[in-house]
Structures are given as C-alpha cells and as structure tokens.
Write a protein that binds this DNA or RNA. Sequence first.
DNA 1: ATGATTCATGCAAGCCCTTACATTTGGATT
DNA 2: AATCCAAATGTAAGGGCTTGCATGAATCAT
Lengths: 341, 341
Amino acid sequence: MQSSRSTPTLDDVAKSAGVSTATVSRCLNSPKRVVESTRLRVMKVVEELGYTPNFGARVMAAKRTFTIGAIIPTMENAIFARGIQAFQEELHARGYTLLISSSAYNPDVEEEQIRALVARGADGLLLIGYERSAEIYRYLEHQNIPVLIAWAFSEQNSHASIGFDNRASMGELTQTVIDHGHRKIGIISGITKGNDRAEQRLEGIIEAVAQCDLGTKVMRVVETSYEIESGGDAFAELMECEDRPTVVMCGNDVLAVGALLRAQDLGLHVPNDVSITGFDDIELALIVTPSLTTVHVPHREMGRRAAIELVKMVEKLSDGASTELQSSLRVRESLGRIKDH
Amino acid sequence: MQSSRSTPTLDDVAKSAGVSTATVSRCLNSPKRVVESTRLRVMKVVEELGYTPNFGARVMAAKRTFTIGAIIPTMENAIFARGIQAFQEELHARGYTLLISSSAYNPDVEEEQIRALVARGADGLLLIGYERSAEIYRYLEHQNIPVLIAWAFSEQNSHASIGFDNRASMGELTQTVIDHGHRKIGIISGITKGNDRAEQRLEGIIEAVAQCDLGTKVMRVVETSYEIESGGDAFAELMECEDRPTVVMCGNDVLAVGALLRAQDLGLHVPNDVSITGFDDIELALIVTPSLTTVHVPHREMGRRAAIELVKMVEKLSDGASTELQSSLRVRESLGRIKDH
DNA sequence: ATGATTCATGCAAGCCCTTACATTTGGATT
DNA sequence: AATCCAAATGTAAGGGCTTGCATGAATCAT
C-alpha cells in the first residue's frame, strides 16, 4: 500500500517496482551496478511517483552531500560576485552545489554561518581571508571539513589558500604612486580589525613608503567601512588637513569611487588637485570618470581554481595546496604626476 | 566507551553525563523542560566533547531546519544584493539561516537549485519572479514547501508574492518621458524569455505609448542580456538607425549605464543628443555622469517584508499573503526635454 | 558438462536524532 | 504518614537511506 498524502520514499518505489530498496538506491547512485532493464523499470516508477530522495537520510547514511559552502563578507558590492560566480560554475560542472551565506563583515555572524553550513552537511568550505578565531578553526578541524581560503595568499600561513599577496600588490601600487612624484599620501583603509586583507593592504602601503627614502610620507590613515558613502566621508576628512595629501590611496575600489565622487562635490579636480587609487578593479573602476587607477585581481581565475582545488580536497586527492595568483597594476586617469616638489 | 576519532554523538554525551539521550536532546532544544542542575552538567559535557548535533539526523527526526533558501538570477550586478541582504538580516533576527544560490538567469539551473535546496531541507523558498515551469511548481506543492515570490507583483497571479507592478511602474516612467516631449523611443530590454519582469517592463512601455495619442512611437526594441557591455552594444545598434530615437529606455540600470558609456564613446551628449532611462535605481545610477533617470524600488523594504511573510508561512501563521510595494520615479539628468517637434 | 568466476540483486544493520509515552521522583496536601 | 500531582527523566520506536555481506543466476574456461 502506498501512502497517499506524504512524499514517497525509497520503500514505496521499491515496492512499486518490485525490487529491493538497495536496488533502487543503486539505480540512483551508481547506475552501472544495475542491469539496464531493471534500471529503466525503476526509473519509470521514480518518475511516476515523483520521488525525491530525502536528503537528511541520505546524508546520514552516506556522509556525503556534494554540497560546498561559501561564506562571503558581503554581497552588496561587486568585490566577490565575479569570483564566486566562477567558483559556482566550476563546482556545478563537477556535480557540486554551492550554497552561499553572507556575513556582513561580522565575525560572529560568519562563525554562526560556518557552523550552520557544516551542520547542514557541507562537504567543504570556501572562506575569505585567513583571520578568524582559533576556536572556529579548531571546530572545523575537529569536524574534519576541508577548508580553502580565498582572496588571500601568504607564505606565513599554513592554511590552504588561493589568492594574491595583498601586501605586495599594494606595495607595488604604492611604488608606482611614488614614482609619479607623490610625497604626501593619504590613506582610506577598510576596517582592519578582523580583516586581514584590509590590514595587509594597509601594511603594504606603509612598508613601501618606509622603504623609499625620497621623503615620502603617509599623512594620515582613516579606517572606514566598505561603502561608497563612507569612502566619501573619509575623503572629506583627509582633505580638511592643513597639509593635504596629493594622493589618496584607498583600500578598495568602492572606497575609491566614494572618494572620487566626493572630490567632485568638493570642487576638486582628479587628478589635477588630488590623485586617487583603488584596489580590486571591479567594473565600477572603468565606469567612473576619471577612470580609476587600481590593482587588477583575476577574480574569475581565482574562483575557478578554488573550485578545482576544493573539490580535490573533498575527494581526498589533495590535502590542500596553496596557489598564488598574480595581480597587476592598472594605471588609469585618476593617478596624476607631480612635477615639481 | 567513547569513540576516539569520529565526532561525538548524542549518545556519547548522554553516557558521559550519565543521563539518557532524551535528556540531552531536551537540554539542547527545550532547556526549560530540564532541571537546571542536570542542564548545567550536560552542557559542560557538550562543551568538553565539542559536540555538534548531526543535522541530517535532526532533520529526519524533527522535520524542521530553520533554513530558508533563496535563488537569485545573478550576483554579478547589484540588483538583488541589497534586497537579499535585508532579507537575510530579518531572517537572522528570527532565528533562520539563509542559504543562497544563483541561477545565472538559467531556468534549468534554477530548477536544479530549487530541488537542491528543498532536498537539503529548506523550510521555505524565496524565488524571484513568477515565471517557471508548471512542473517545478507542482513539485514544490507536492513537497509542501512554502514559496514566496519577490521582485514581482501581479493581481492576476495567485502565488504569494511581494513586489511592485513592473508594468505599471515602467508605464509611469514612459508617461514622464512622453511628457518631456519625446516622440521617438528606442528600447533596450532584458531577455524576456523566462523573465516575467523584463517582459512586463517592456509591455509597460509599449502600452503607455499605445495609450497616448500624441504620435509617440516605439522605433525599435533590442533584447539583450543584463550586462554593461551588451547594453552598450544594443545602444550602438539603436543609434545606427536612420531615424534615431530621442530617448532610449532600458530594462534596468545596468543596461542604461552601458548605453550611457557607449553614448560617450560615440561622442553623443546625454541628454542633449539622446536621453537614457533605467530601472531599479541601483547605486550606480547616482554614480554615473550624467545621473540616471530611473524607477526607484524599495529593495530593503521588500527584503525585510519578504522575510517576515515567509517565516509566517513556514510557521503556518499565514498561507501566503501578497503585498504590493510602491515604486517611485527618480527623474535625473539623463532625461532631457524636447522643445520643438 | 562441471567447477570457477562474475554479476545483479536482496537482506538487514546502522547512521543520529526527536518525541510520545511510561516511569520515577520529590514535594505539597490532607 | 499516606496520598496525590506535577515535574523530571528514561525507554524505545521510528525516520529514509546506503552499503557490506550473502545469495543466486549467468557466464566462462576447461
């Protein structure tokens, strides 16, 4: 007898097809282990009954979900969108489903979501940046969940990661800025607390400045959240100083665009009155006028490779290799040259 | 005896604390049903062992996951980001976890992801727009999963939804365009196939034009994917005509920004040579120069309310009410006035 | 034709939790 | 001190699936 209202189970299918539950299960999971004729018969019944496996039961029995989780700090700006899209496409091609959560740059929320995703049976996790509590790393290890860190790469850190060296990239950009004759640098940084990428970018600037002995100095650093509006406010703050910087280097493109727009509001010409630089090379960087000097990051490539590596880890073909990708400078209109000083 | 390597189970905790599994379960799920002293003891063991409930087993036994799934067409541009962020925040406040998937505007992928999310125990689903196969709607009904449609509202449709009337909103914008003296309209629409929002926006323009008898006409419609680049290409195509439109109305802001940029490349001044309008009022609309005339949509409000309603549905306090939100025009620099004709 | 081997299928244990129901406990009431 | 009641806890029955092992049938080599 077939239960009328509730969703059909493996058992229902098995009975209706006149085989054992094991055979039905095998039809679904390893079709080659079943002879064609039975498989066809079973599949027909599956169709008719509209059977869908109960995931909870499946997870419990098989301990595999073919689900990968990713937690990104934000969806509100495009920083991660492209990379994650590529990540998803590659996973899809490999038969995995991606589930995404956004933490709004809040470490507590991120932690909750890590637990949620793990509890829901994620086979592996993609996380952004290294920095999080030792406790949660312990938890992940204990749960035996492969984790790949993206958007960051550092040789100091032993976690498997794919990304670029935020510090070095920003250092390179800074060098270029200095080469353009700038000696007074203002910085708008993302919140560094709990965000190693923001931190390293900031350090990258400071280091590069320290290493060059042309008398270049950092006038001031303002930390603020990654929003256009706050980028603008921070810019205004920097411009209030007596001794104005000739260039404002921003922790990412979103902040830089905020600065750019505010400059216009304030009647300052970029780059004649002040230069502005960003980081990430999101679409926006090319849309604004003047176009933004920034550091280009191979987002899609990173996403794609992350998927490949993480799947390998999940399938125990790798225990986590790290990959460093190369970023590259995009010098555009927003960076000007200082002639005399 | 306690298994040494694998993650601890309820049983391990129970044994170690000297109580039954039922008591441990109650400590975790309904603490008031357990006396304080035992609860403390149990929780201590939970801590020590680093116990986390097995989600699969829990789902199976309890049939509730406190997980909501959402499938959005894209993460690559900001259209959905803000609304989804608000949706997530509100869900979080109510104790639910949001899991997101992106379908890349592909109905087949969307369908797969619906199944994936349902299979993984989503208590309810947020979907964008009405249009999808009858089959998948049947599946959802069969599985008894509450579904709320967002970013769309139509009285014709019986599904619970929250959104605005895409057709009417676009009609209103069109009326304003006509009032500005425009008589020759070019249209860049999103792909209408499988996208009711794109379709209704297009219809909204065409209807409004038909209803006004000032001799206004639609010169040409170009359908293209929602990317800046394709918006630009479509714009170029429209500008090739003998009898050029005086205004190009776009299906969303992304297309409009593409058109705007291309206009600049082509040496056309906006709005003197040609006006451009968008839809959505994403951040970009205010960033570009000239600023974009568009239709503002209360994204955050929509996300928030969607969360409230969907949770009600999941908790059987509602069987799906629909809410219409009001959009509003934002007339900005990109729309000019035609004086003589 | 016979034994050896392979292949398709079935049997049933086990995965880990929740919860209805049964039992025990300890205090309040008489 | 006996009785009763509610609160606290225990017992055990699922829930739906996968998979190691067992079985039986079919194929092959000799």
